[in-house]
């Protein structure tokens, strides 16, 4: 199973698409490693710099709705994975992106808009870190000396995929 939790990167916008996460020109790469320097290269977001330390240090992304919309390219979750970002907390995901994350044994968490707004506000209070308790289905965000704990839901199938380390391993043992 992968490790989840650590520094949080806030991407405060709806509809961040797969072309912004990893542009099509890198789709001819055939290793995950080659995607590493290009994560979020084309993202249009005020105050965001793809070369920043905030991205380099990040282990968790906190974002808004319809995250990962567009192409089916698994290169998008891979680009996060290879940069050590295994968990993404969002108001909502595009279907294929969410399934791709689970298939790679990554952690996609969906929370109501109100909760995302509260977490975003807290994350702006300084260096933010998030931890996950998969058993209790609870996450905790700590920033600026304050903390906020939130319950999340992950269905059985998702939990099994994450524990197995992804869909290939799971399918090969079960089907």
């Amino acid at each position: 199973m992968k490790k989840f939790g650590g520094e949080v990167l806030l991407l405060d916008r709806d509809n961040i698409n797969t072309d912004e996460i990893i542009p099509a020109k890198y789709l001819t790469e055939i290793t995950k490693e080659a995607l590493k320097p290009h994560l979020l290269e084309d993202l249009q977001l005020k105050g965001f710099d793809p070369q920043s330390k905030a991205l380099a240090d990040a282990k968790v992304v906190l974002t808004r709705n319809n995250f990962g919309c567009g192409s089916s390219r698994e290169h998008a979750p891979w680009a996060f994975e290879i940069n050590g970002i295994n968990a993404i907390v969002a108001e909502g995901f595009a279907r294929i992106f969410r399934q791709n994350m689970l298939n790679c044994g990554m952690l996609p968490i969906e929370l109501p808009k109100k909760e995302i707004t509260a977490l975003s506000k807290l994350a702006r209070q300084g260096k933010a870190k998030m931890s996950f308790d998969l058993k209790q289905q609870k996450l905790t965000l700590k920033a600026g000396g304050r903390s906020r704990a939130v319950a999340f839901e992950l269905n059985d199938f998702a939990t099994k995929l994450i524990k197995a380390g992804g869909w290939v391993a799971y399918a090969d043992t079960v089907y």
Binding site: S72, R73, P77, Q99, F157, A171, D172
Partner: peptide, 20 residues
Amino acid sequence: AGVGTTDLEVGILKGICAFR
């Protein structure tokens, strides 16, 4: 339906796919 590479991989190997 469109799927990612891992779904495709399991599809090729097992002829199955999981959907909501």
